[in-house]
Simulated scan of single mutants.
Amino acid sequence: MRNISLLSFLIGLTIVARAQEVVIDTNYYAPPPVVRRPVLIADPDQNLNHRQLKGNRQADNRRDLLNQFNEVQTWYISAETGFRSDGSILSNSLDRLVSNPTLTKAVWSGLFGYTYRNSWAVEVGYTRAPIHLNITIANSNDPLVFNYTNSGYGIPLRIKRRIGSGSRSANGTGFWVTGGAWLIPNGNGQTGDFRLIGYTYHSRNRTDTLRLNNSTTIFKRVTGVAELGIDYTTRLSPTIELGFYARKYWGLGNALRSDLVYTVNNSAKQQATITADGTGWGFGLALRYIYGRQQEMKKP
C-alpha cells in the first residue's frame, strides 16, 4: 500500500513539472532566408590586367597624337655593318701564273644623319672598309697568296632620296635611293715585296729557272670612291629604325699598285701590273637612333 502511494506521488509530480514548462517559438525571431543568385564574371585568364590596359591606352593616345603631326626634321645616329667585295685589275696573267681573285670582307660604319620632311636625308661619318689587292701565285695544289691593303678607313658623305610619297612619317617605312662619295686618305697599310724562284724540268738535260719579283706600293695621295645604292628602312619604334642596303662602288683613283717581273733563265722577260681602287659591291644593315625631331601640325 505504501509503495502504491509513493508511485502515485511521483507520477503526479512529473505531470505538474510538465505543466510548468514554457515553450518559446523562435520562428518569429529567425532572420529571413538568404536567396543566392548565380553571378558570372569573365574568365581572368582571358582579360588583360589593369596595367596592360593602361599601357595600351597610353600607346593608342600617343599614336593618335603622332598622327596629328608631320615630321619636318629629324637627327639620328646610325651604325652600319655588312660585307663588301672589292677587286683589282691585272694587266697580264704571266702565262696563267698570276691571278687576282675578288675578296669579300666585313665592314662597319658610324654615321650622323639628318632628314627633311621624310623625303631627303644626308649622312656623314666614318667607315672601316679597307681596299684590297690580292696576288695569287699558282703553285701545284697549294697556291701562294699575298694580300695587301691601304689604311682601311674613309669619310663617306651620302645623300638619300625617298622613293614615293613621304606622308607616312609616323613609321618611316620606305625605300630610298642613295648616292655619295668617300674621301680616302690611303696612308700606311699592309704592304711588302717578295721574290720567288722555281724550276721547270723538261728532261734530264733541260731545266728552266723561273723568277718572279713583286713590288707593291700604297699611294700617299688622297683618293675616293663613288657609290650608288638603294635602302629599305622600317621604323621599329618612335626612336629606332632598322635599314637594309645594297650599294655599288666605283674607285676614283688607284690606292694600291703591284709591279711584277717574270723571267725564265734570266731572259724572256715579262711584266704585269695589278691596281686596286675600291671598285666593288656592298650589302648590309643599319640601326638608327633618332635623338631629335621637329614636327608641325598637319593641315586639315
Rank of each mutant, 00 (worst) to 15 (best):
F244C: 04
W108A: 09
V261I: 12
R18A: 04
D208C: 09
G55P: 01
N266T: 08
N47S: 13
G229I: 02
L260M: 10
G154F: 03
G198C: 06
S99R: 05
F244K: 02
G243S: 15
K220D: 00
G166V: 06
V39R: 10
G229K: 03
T173A: 11
E241G: 03
V222C: 05
K269V: 08
S151V: 05
Y126D: 02
V177I: 13
Q20S: 09
D43L: 01
L13W: 06
T216H: 05
V39D: 12
A121N: 00
D208Y: 04
F175Q: 07
L260E: 00
L103S: 14
P101M: 05
Q68M: 11
L183Q: 07
E123P: 01
L260V: 02
I159L: 15
L65Q: 13
L144W: 05
L210M: 11
V16K: 14
G189I: 08
D64H: 04
A19M: 10
I230K: 07
R211K: 13
K248H: 06
A30K: 15
V122P: 00
A19V: 06
T200R: 10
S5Y: 09
Y126G: 08
V39L: 12
N100P: 05
G282K: 03
P33L: 06
I163H: 09
N118Y: 02
D95F: 05
S203D: 12
I163F: 12
R18P: 00
R62I: 12
Q271R: 14
D60T: 11
A272R: 00
D95V: 02
S167C: 04
Y29T: 15
E227C: 07
T102E: 15
N47Q: 14
P101T: 05
F219V: 06
H132T: 08
N139Q: 11
N266W: 02
N213K: 15
R62A: 15
G224C: 03
A226N: 08
L90Y: 10
W176T: 03
I159D: 02
T217K: 15
D193S: 15
T216Y: 02
L196M: 13
R195W: 00
P143E: 14
V122D: 00
Q58S: 14
Y76L: 03
S119W: 00
S167A: 13
R162Y: 01
K248P: 01
R84W: 03
Y148A: 04
L53E: 13
G12L: 14
L260P: 01
P32D: 03
S99D: 11
N92W: 02
H132Q: 05
G292H: 06
